[in-house]
Nucleic acid binder design. Structure first.
Lengths: 194, 194
DNA sequence: GCATTACGATACATTTTGTACCGTATTAGG
DNA sequence: CCTAATACGGTACAAAATGTATCGTAATGC
C-alpha cells in the first residue's frame, strides 16, 4: 500500500520531532484546551522550534487534526449481532471518538477551521470512510434480511449519527451517557423499520 | 415584558452605533467570511471605534451572534397540518436558519467560541427555546392522537434535527436541498411511529 | 455647576502568525 | 573528498489582532 518515497536529497527529517510534536499537542489540549495550543507552545514542549513544525504542517489545525485523529475512526466496533445491537455499537463508537476530552477540546475548532482549509475538511471526512462503508454494508445486509425498509440510506443514517453526537457534544455535553446511546440507537432502529 | 432600565447617569449611548455595528458585521460576513470580521474592520465600516464596540459586547463572538441571530429562530413555521408535514416544516426552518450564507459563515466559529464563553453557549441555546417548546407541544399532541409512540422525546427529536443540519452544513453543505429535507423528515416520521 | 458616562482619536503592550536569515549538521551523489 | 540539498536550532523581523489606557470633548441627570 505504501509507496517507497523517492529519497530526497539533503539531511532527512528527524522522525522524533514529529512524534514529540503530536504528543505535545495532545498534552496541551488536555491541560489547557485549544487556546493553549499554539505553534510556540507546541514547539517549546516538543523541544524544537516553530520552523520545524511549519516544515511538517501547513497550519496549526492540520497539526491538531493529526494529533487527535491519527487513524481511521471506530476500528473497535464489533459488528455481526442483531441490527439494534450493531446500531448501538456505531453510535457508541462515534460518541467515544468525538466526545473524549481531547476530541471535545479540538473538534469544534477543527470544524471551524475547515472553512478556511478545504484539505482539512477532506481529511476529516476521510476518517469516517471506514465507518461509512461498514455502515453501508451492514445496512444492505439488514435490507436484504428484511430488517430495514428498502429506501433506507446509509449516508443519511451516518449523517444522523454524527449529527446527533456533534449537536450533543456542542449543546448538551453532559448528557451523552450510555443511556443516551441506547435511546438514540433505538430511535434510529425504529426509523429503519420496514 | 421589557423592564424600564434605571436611567444611568452620564451621556447616553448613541443607538445608531449598535445598529451600524450589527449591519457592518453582516456585510463583512457575507463579503469576506468570518476571517474578515475583526473588531477593527467592524468599527471602521460602522464609522466608529473599537472602544465603542468593547463597551457594548465583551468579545467579537457575542457581537457576531447578535448580528446573525438577533431573534428567536424559526418563527415562520406553519404548524397544524399532519405530523409528516409539520416535521418537514421544522426541518426546513432549521435548515434555513443555519444554512443561510450568513449563518453558514458564522455558525462554526460561534460553536467553537462557545467553549471559551459559556454565556455565548447559553445565548445560542436560548434561540432554540421557542422552536423546542413548539416541537414539544406538537409531539405531545401527536402522542395523544396515537400518531407517535409514547416514549418519543422532543429533546431527542430536536437534537436529531439540529444535528442533521449541522453535520450537513459542515460535511456536505451542497446537498441540503428540499429533497434532503423531505427525506430527513420522512425518516424522523418513521422513527416516531408507534 | 458637577458628577458621570459616551465618544473619537491615539497610543501602547501583548500575543500569535508567518517569513527570513544564519551557522551548523546530515545525507546523496559525482 | 567535494558539492548540492535539506534539516536543525536560534534569532530576528514584520504584520495582524486583541485588550487596555489616556486625552479632550460632548451629552445627560441631579
Amino acid at each position: 500500500m505504501k509507496v517507497d518515497q523517492v529519497r530526497a536529497a539533503g539531511r532527512p527529517r528527524d522522525p522524533r520531532i514529529e512524534q514529540s510534536a503530536l504528543a505535545a499537542v495532545r498534552e496541551l489540549l488536555l491541560t489547557g484546551g485549544y487556546p493553549a495550543v499554539t505553534m510556540a507552545a507546541v514547539a517549546e514542549r516538543a523541544g524544537t522550534t516553530r520552523m520545524a513544525l511549519y516544515r511538517r504542517w501547513p497550519a496549526l489545525p492540520h497539526l491538531v487534526h493529526e494529533a487527535v485523529f491519527p487513524d481511521e475512526l471506530m476500528l473497535d466496533m464489533q459488528l455481526g449481532a442483531d441490527l439494534a445491537t450493531d446500531l448501538a455499537g456505531f453510535v457508541r463508537g462515534t460518541r467515544d471518538a468525538l466526545c473524549s476530552p481531547m476530541a471535545a477540546a479540538a473538534v469544534p475548532e477543527l470544524l471551524a477551521a475547515s472553512a478556511t482549509w478545504p484539505d482539512l475538511h477532506a481529511a476529516m471526512l476521510q476518517r469516517f470512510e471506514g465507518a461509512f462503508s461498514a455502515l453501508d454494508d451492514r445496512l444492505a445486509e439488514a435490507i436484504a434480511a428484511g430488517e430495514a425498509h428498502p429506501d433506507a440510506r446509509s449516508d443519511e443514517l451516518l449523517q444522523l449519527i454524527i449529527g446527533a453526537v456533534i449537536s450533543g457534544v456542542l449543546l448538551t455535553p453532559d448528557e451523552l451517557d450510555d443511556a443516551w446511546v441506547d435511546r438514540l440507537a433505538a430511535t434510529l432502529h425504529r426509523s429503519l423499520r420496514p
